[in-house]
């Protein structure tokens, strides 16, 4: 967030506090350090990228908590499909 936005009506700090808390609590409760997810993310990229063209920078690994049920959510966008050239 730019300084300008922060000073003049950007996101209110309470909303920021709430979303940051939700993030740390998901990791605290699961006893999984956020850095561990980064490592898992890198491993997944290594495995998948051998076989598929993926958008490495947009791969996301998160823990989601819905009503006490936790899931490891992995989102791997594939590289844009290219039409086959020629024939």
């Amino acid at each position: 967030m730019s300084m300008f936005k922060q000073w003049f009506g950007g996101r209110k700090s309470a909303a920021e506090a709430k979303s940051r808390l939700k993030f740390v609590l998901i990791h605290d409760r699961a006893e999984i350090a956020p850095g561990m997810l980064e490592a898992i993310r890198d491993d997944i990229i290594d495995v998948i990228a051998d076989r598929l063209q993926i958008e490495r920078d947009r791969v996301a690994v998160n823990i989601e908590d819905e009503g006490g049920e936790r899931r490891l959510m992995v989102d791997i966008p594939l590289a844009p499909a290219r039409r086959r050239q020629g024939s």
Binding site: K12, S13, A14, A15, A17, K18, K22
Partner: peptide, 14 residues
Amino acid sequence: KKQDMLSVEDIQEV
């Protein structure tokens, strides 16, 4: 009220 502090509802939800 100024949305500068977590509300009761926020804390309850979290």
